[in-house]
Amino acid sequence: MQKFKSNQKLYIGAFITGIMLLLALTGTVFTPYDPNAMDTTAKFGSISLKHIMGCDNFGRDIFSRVLAGLSTTMSVAMGTVLIGIFFGTLIGAFTGYFGGMPDEILMRINDAVLAFPSLLLALVFISIMGPGKFNVTIALGILFIPGFARIMRGEFLRCKNLDYVQSARLMGASDLRIMFVHILPNTLQVMLSTVAIGFNNAVLAEAGMSFLGIGVQPPDSSLGRMLSEAQTYLFIKPGYAIVTGMTIALLILGFAMLSEGLEKNA
């Protein structure tokens, strides 16, 4: 408990992330206006009680669009991290626990992939599979596997010769049982902080790709896409860009602080 008290980053990170999650959840079920409904009378409408963040070039309510975009971005990030952590843990567990030749080979491939800017790889994937919310999630998810696998492998490698594993082995527990019942729960701290940083990277990647127009496609709204729309009207309505950009930045800030806090706590 003492550790938690001095860990400001964890608190602030959890607070920001919590609010963002809440907003994203709200965005999936309720937005004040239809995020795609256009109102020609409200083009570039300024901040008012009706539209708390004003309106965009088509007269769409910016706050509703931010909520919807936030939930799209979050769901892409969630899918990405789930794919990454699931397969990453599986690969990491087997390579770390058993070692040997498969470990060598997989880790070399891992190194090659990790040495590569993920944006570039994502672009290759998207040019093969085509853009869209689903494809972006799959592409990013696959790209995240090596990173997760490396960290989880380290954890399994560290734990496999500890006393509790030895005694479980003496009691006749099978390898699979040791890996997933005994070791896995002990990797939770590290896994959580990795997941948080994974969210951070996923949000950044999705926003970047949608910004370039090769990520999430309309009618799905996404923060990155909105930011690229906002750029066209930067002079007329800078508020649009600021609100959208700040939302992305806050998401990333929240996850980064959460991850650091968890790491410190471990």
Binding site: L204, A207, G208, F211, L227, A230, Q231, L234, F235, P238, A241, G245, I248, A249, L250, I252, L253, A256, M257
Partner: peptide, 22 residues
């Protein structure tokens, strides 16, 4: 630092465009 780290480069670019360009 912590805040700067969290702002994606393309948003920094837009802020710079607005302040220094426009």
């Amino acid at each position: 630092n912590q805040i700067t780290m969290s702002v994606p480069s393309f948003f920094v670019g837009m802020i710079i465009t607005y302040i220094f360009g426009l």
